[in-house]
Every structure is written in structure tokens, then in C-alpha cells.
Design a protein around this nucleic acid. Structure first.
Lengths: 211, 211, 211, 211
DNA sequence: GATGAATGAGCATTCATTCAT
DNA sequence: TATGAATGAATGCTCATTCAT
């Protein structure tokens, strides 16, 4: 029995970043897998489902990926890569002021989730379908991103610019705000992605109550 | 190959609320299913997995539930029930002040997620594995809860007690904070559930910048 | 494309010894597998082939054996067991005379191969399809049997009753004579199984040139 | 899971006779196929296995052989050819004495099996994977060889030089001795191929008890 | 309530083979 | 000659579920 999709994920935006590789069957497979894993889950999507959507025989996929799990692993890798990359880039552009830095990190976090919502869903909700070996690099990158946010807030607190409550809980809360975006935000609606990012940055600043 | 569980979900707390029914095989099945659906997902858990953990034959489960999907439906129903019940109770106790009301709602939201983390995970992440018919009541309850939070904030804003930014985004953000708790919070750690609830209530108040 | 069977293996005799277990689906599966592995080989026989011959669904076999390989392992185990058992029994009955002993061993070896030809074929030709773990006990039993024949001849030689040429080669030759029986001998033909066993015993005696 | 090879087949000797054709990809394919068919069986070896060992793509093999089965057929043909050729040659050199003739035939039989053990294994154990059409010439050649041995013994018996027991069983036994050589004989061990051939010839003579 | 044998559909994956390049 | 992408059938096996006992 077919069930409801997880959410109406933004259509029309490109599903994958350019770093996913050049057009061709390999990229098509990644895109179809991304869409289906995001809406029906990894275990809820069969190789036949993918093949049908691709108008290919199931066996043809194996010329491009050694297994269904490797397909997921590649998507998770891409998702972590674009997330990490975006955070790093915007943070570097933001200067030394903790307020600007926090704004930059939260904005980046939000923008990644509005730009690549399916990728974010797969990374966050389906990553655990991977075997320990394939999951490890993802866990590491995720911890890196949390650490980055933590350092920004701790530095701001040390400088007296932030008055955070429990820092760990605050970091978790700010992270969570972005993580859930793909589950409710609709691209093309009345709230633009840029406005959402700006709002979330402002909310984060309020959470650490800067002067 | 067995894979990592979704998170180290709090062990030792009772998995299900008393409303799940009296002890017995039926309750044991619900508890095992809750644990496995939460850690491996609905599609990632087989009836045989459940039966093995229960030291029962797969066919024995069918004396208690008509299908695997009904098992999930019952868990989702219980999760929504306890969530709604908790919110309603704490809100009724909070009086008319929007600040107290917001504090009550956020506290309740957090406490549900620290008390029944697996149930929260199943409700939020696995609900979409249900067929449209079984999913509808859950969607309705969820919208109710969001509406409740929205009303509290709008009333506070109208009374001049809150100065929210975009209200929809704020409601989503506050909801998200609680939803992610089961994925990182460890019961018995240095942060007590009560302290976390208090912290999240305070963060929410900061987000709407009350006077 | 279906190919010729390995040989027209004796039909009408019971395929498996009583030690294979009581009648029922499990035994039927073993018998069908034995027949097909013997004639088309382990890799040339599919689970669907077995299921078709059994008038069962492929999945039904898995209630009785955990895998196709375990099915083969059980047949190999039975084959080694009956071989070892037969040799041991006849040898014990034969008294202390090396001539009688050699006669007993060779007769037993021949009789096993005329009585359970399919089992012998599977043991000898398909055993190597097993993984190292499952193959080990079979290798051990086989070496035991060879050692037994070796000891009889060596003792006879030490007593001056036998004048063997190279003992290792002689043991191999006597073993080989029996091993090939299922590939040419036809039960019910003009040569009775008993006469064949007697002839082979005599040939073995000639090979060690007893007085 | 990779499994044990059928036996430690003599390495270092040339796998194929010169008649297999000149060096080049075609011969390399034949050699690799011979090795793998001998150790894992025809059905247990895939075109991909061969291609991997050859460091070639699976499709590349089809420039040299029309199908996997034709590859096997060519190996079987070569095996029968070399066997028949060796028997014929040594028999022609042996003169008219039945004792010399039997010695020659058994020696030739043994030498073929020590010189081309993999080829012998493929011919004897895998021939039945061929379709009836491709298998027929092999069966014929094999019967010719048996007939040749039979005639030598019958002639010797008629001349009073041999006192065989049941002739059919004796022929089968002598044939079997050679056939099993690849399964136990190790080239380079303490027993030389020549010594083994000599021993087997002597054993055969003892079996027919020549004066 | 629970079991054990069975079903029929579906699973991920591998097979030998083809074909345009 | 060789490749890389593809096919279509088949592989061993697992799935949720049923049913007589």
C-alpha cells in the first residue's frame, strides 16, 4: 500500500548541488534516489521503485553504484559536504564579531535546508540506515558543525556579548530549528528563503540575548 | 547487517504511558515495537525482528494486532494522545498570563519529549509510513498543538506582551526545538529533564522578546 | 538450457539412509535436493528447482533449512556418516586377519557406493561448494577413512601378508575404485552389488599381492 | 562467500597442451577458465569471475568465444584430444605383448592426469554441464578409451596371459584410479609423476594377475 | 494465546549476454 | 579488440500474513 509522502518537498529547485557530478545516468540515479528516499524513506524505497522512475532495468543501477546502501551513502556524503561547505564559507565572510558570526552560521544552516530540503531530510532521517562503516564520516562532520556553533556562542559569551542560558541546550535548539525546515517550509510561498534565514538568525540572537 | 540505532534513546524510563494498557503480551508487543520502530524505523523492522525480541513466533503477534501497520497506528495514537493531554493539562494550570501560558506549553512540549522519547520519534519520523486513512487523526492532532502555540503567541502579541518576528516561523522553531530532544538528550546526564524544560521555556520567551 | 544428467543413477533404491530422519517435509526436501544436486550439481540446482519438484513455494524450504548451503551441508554430513559407519561396522566384524580386514573395508566402501550412489556423488563432487566452516568436518571424516585403509595395509605389510607397492598410491587407487562406482554402476543390471563388492575386494587383495 | 578449491591442483606445470593454440588473449582466457572451472566448477564460475582474473571487462570475452558454454566445450575438447592422443601414441609404441600394452595404456592414463590435472577434472566433472549436442563427441571419445583398455585385457585373457575377474568392473577400476589422480596427487612431492605411472601400471597388472 | 508450516509477493543482487562506440 | 552501459531473466532469500492445530 502506497502511503503519504513525508511532506511536499519543494519542487522546481535543483535537487542536488553541482558537486554531485555531471549530468548523466549516475546523476539521474542520485536525483531519483534522493527524491524517493526523502519521501518514502530508504527502507520504504526499493531498487525496483528507483528503476521504474528512471525507466531502466533494476540491474542497470549496479553499473553505477555497488549497492542500494552505497547510493544512500553517497547522498549522505553530498549532504554533509554541502552543509559543511556552506557553513564554513559564510562564517569566513562574516568577520570577527560574534553577533555577525552567529548570524552567519544560522543563516547558512537555514539556507542549506531551504535550498536542498530533500538532501537534508535524507541526511537527518535516513543516515541511520547505513552500516557503521559508512555512517562514521557523516557523524564526524555533523559533530564538527555543532562544535562550530558552540565555539561561536562560547566566544561571544566570553566576550560578554552573549548571555546564553545552558549552552548545550541552546546549540541543540538552534540546530533543531534548521533541521525541521524541510518538514514545513514551502519554497515559493509567502515567506522567502532569505527572509526565513534572516528571521532564524534574529531568533538565535534573541536566544543568546546579545546586547 | 545490523546498523547503528538512530540515537541512544533513554533507557530505564518507562517506554509507554500507563494509558497504553495493562501489562501482558499486548503491552510487551507495543513496547518492543516502539523500541525497534524508534531505532530502526518502521520499514527497517520486520515482524520477525519483533517476534525474536519477544521470544515469540511471528504468527503469535497476530492474536494481538491485525497487522504491523495497526501496531504502528496504535503507537502513533498513544503518542499523540499523551502529547495533547500533557499540553492541555499544563496550559489549564497556567492562568491567563501569555508569558505563563507560553512557558507552560513549551515546558509541556519538552517534558513529553524527555519522558517518552521513543514515542516522540515514532510519531514524528514514522507516522508517514501509515496509510492515509490511519494517518489523518494524527495530522489533525498535530495541527491542533501547533495552533495552540500560535494562539498563545498571537494573544501575547495582541496584548503587547510579545514582540515576535514572523509568527509562523517562530512557532515552527519552538516546535522543532522540542521535536529534536530525543535525538540528543540523555536522561540521567548532567542536565535534568526539568532543567531542560525550564531552559527551553526561557528560550521561547526570549524568542518572542517579552518585556 | 537443460543439460544431460551426470549419469543415470540407480532409481528404486531408497535415496537416503534411515538416519536422515523421519518422513515428512524435511526428509522430502533432503531427498529431492540429493537427487538434483547429484544430477545437476549444487550450483546447477536452484531453490526454485527444488521447490518445483516438491510442489512447494521456494520460501517454504526456509522453514526447514536456513540456507541452500546448509541443505548441502546436511547431505554431506549424512553421506560421511553412513560411509564412516559402514566401514567401522564391517571392519569390527572382520576379525584380526589383515586379508579379512582389507576385504571388509573394500567391500564396505563398494557397498556404500552402490547403496547410496547419489549421496556418494554429492559428497565427493559437491562438497567443495561448501564454505570452509561447513566443509571441515567432512574433510576430517574422509581423512579418517583413508587412514583406516592405510593402517590395514601397513599392518598387513608389517606382518608379511601384503607386499604392496607404494602404499599411498595404492590407498588412493583402492579409494578411487569405489568413488567412481556411482558413475557407471547400474543397480539391477547383470552385476549384483554384492558381486561387485566381492570383485573389488578381490582386486584390492591382488593389488597388495597377499600370499 | 568464496569456498575451498576442489583440491590443490598442481601449479607451475603448464595448464594447457600446446595444441590449445598460440599465446594471446584467447589462450589466456582458456587458461583462466580452466583454472576456475576446475576449482569452482562451471556453474560456480561466472563470466565476471573470469573477466576479473583476466583484468578484462566481461564483454571482452565475447570477442573470443561465443558463450561461456563454448569455452567449456573447447576445454573439454582439448582434454579429450590430449587424452586420446597420449593413449594412442603410447599404445602404438608398446608392441604386441598384452602386458606391455596394458602397462602402456595405464601409464598413459596416469601421465595425462598428472600432466594436465585441471583439464582432467574439467573433462570428468564438468562435462555434464554441456548441452547434449556439445557433450556427444566427448562421450564417444571416452567410450573409445574404455573400449581400448577392454580390448587389451580381453586379448590378454584370450591369450592366457591375464586371469581377470569381472572384466567390466576391472576396466572401471583401472579407469577410476587414474581419474582421481588430480584430486590427491601433488606434483613436486616425493612421488614423481613417472613413478606414479609405473606404480599404477604395476597395480593394473596385478589386478589382471598376469603370469 | 501460541505454534509451525505454508503462501505468494517482493527483496537486493547477479547472471550471461548484447551493442554502440 | 576492448569498453561501458544496458538488458531481461534468474538468483537466494525475506516479507507480512494465514491457518490448522
Amino acid at each position: 500500500m502506497r502511503t503519504l509522502s513525508r511532506a511536499t518537498l519543494g519542487v522546481g529547485t535543483s535537487l542536488l548541488p553541482p558537486s554531485a557530478g555531471p549530468d548523466g545516468t549516475r546523476r539521474r540515479i542520485l536525483e531519483v534516489a534522493l527524491q524517493q528516499f526523502a519521501s518514502r524513506g530508504f527502507h520504504g524505497t526499493s531498487i525496483r521503485d528507483l528503476a521504474t522512475a528512471l525507466e531502466l532495468q533494476p540491474s542497470a543501477l549496479y553499473a553505477h553504484f555497488p549497492s542500494k546502501e552505497h547510493l544512500l551513502a553517497e547522498l549522505v556524503r553530498l549532504g554533509h559536504e554541502i552543509h559543511h561547505e556552506t557553513l564554513r564559507t559564510l562564517l569566513l565572510e562574516s568577520g570577527a564579531d560574534p553577533v555577525d558570526q552567529l548570524r552567519a552560521v544560522v543563516r547558512a544552516h537555514a539556507r542549506v535546508h531551504t535550498t536542498y530540503p530533500q538532501l537534508a531530510v535524507v541526511v537527518n532521517d535516513e543516515m541511520y540506515a547505513l552500516s557503521p562503516k559508512l555512517i562514521a564520516p557523516g557523524i564526524a562532520l555533523r559533530n564538527d558543525s555543532a562544535a562550530l556553533l558552540l565555539q561561536v556562542i562560547e566566544r561571544g559569551a566570553a566576550m560578554g556579548r552573549f548571555k546564553p542560558l545552558n549552552i548545550g541546550a541552546t546549540v541543540a535548539a538552534i540546530g533543531a530549528m534548521g533541521l525541521r525546515i524541510p518538514h514545513w517550509y514551502e519554497a515559493g510561498g509567502e515567506l522567502s528563503a532569505e527572509a526565513l534565514a534572516e528571521t532564524y538568525a534574529e531568533l538565535a540572537l534573541r536566544m543568546v540575548k546579545p546586547t
